[in-house]
């Protein structure tokens, strides 16, 4: 019985952490974002950002999102090294360096921070772009 309980609870935990396709969906968003950046498609890159992040970028740079995002020092290349999904949040690390953070909105995954690198142990990453 204890084994059965454990198996059921593990299944629950797995669902909570987001097994299966959710990780692929988050990866796909980042790949589209990186492809847009590589191609100089600012509008395409901004389409993958959350509204708050795009708005924060416009305020910070004083330009429309599709122009401002191309001026940032973000890693190029879309190869994803690792994706982690927990509940409604995800992180995607790029092979070229740098990490992106995503939130799951009603319409799917949106990028909330990009160009992030570790600052100090157990401290938030420093991000080129964040909400």
């Amino acid at each position: 019985m204890a084994v059965l309980v454990t198996v059921v609870l593990l299944a629950v935990a797995c669902l909570g952490a987001g097994c299966g396709g959710r990780s692929d969906d988050a990866t796909a968003v980042v790949e589209r974002f990186q492809t847009a950046l590589d191609g100089g498609d600012g509008a395409g890159a901004c389409a993958e950002l959350s509204e708050q992040t795009a708005s924060a970028l416009e305020q910070q740079e004083g330009h429309p999102c599709d122009e401002a995002i191309l001026d940032l020092d973000l890693a190029v290349g879309g190869e994803v090294a690792e994706t982690s999904v927990y509940v409604t949040s995800a992180s995607v690390s790029l092979a070229a360096g740098g990490t992106l953070f995503l939130d799951q909105a009603s319409g799917g995954w949106e990028i909330s921070a990009a160009g992030c690198r570790p600052s100090a142990p157990d401290r938030p990453f420093d991000c080129e772009l964040e909400d």
Binding site: M1, A2, V3, V5, T6, L9, L10, V12, A13, G16, A17, S84, Y86, V87, T88, S89, A90, S91, S93, T99, F101, D103, A113, C116, P118, D122, R123, P124, F125, C127, E130
Partner: peptide, 30 residues
């Protein structure tokens, strides 16, 4: 004891998921 250890183990699994969701929200790796 089996139910205790099983539910404690399951707490650790669900706990790390919740903890990591909070870390990601604060732009930290899991």
């Amino acid at each position: 004891a089996a139910i205790w250890l099983g539910s404690w183990f399951a707490q650790s699994i669900t706990g790390v998921n919740e903890y990591n969701a909070d870390r990601l929200d604060h732009h930290q790796l899991p």
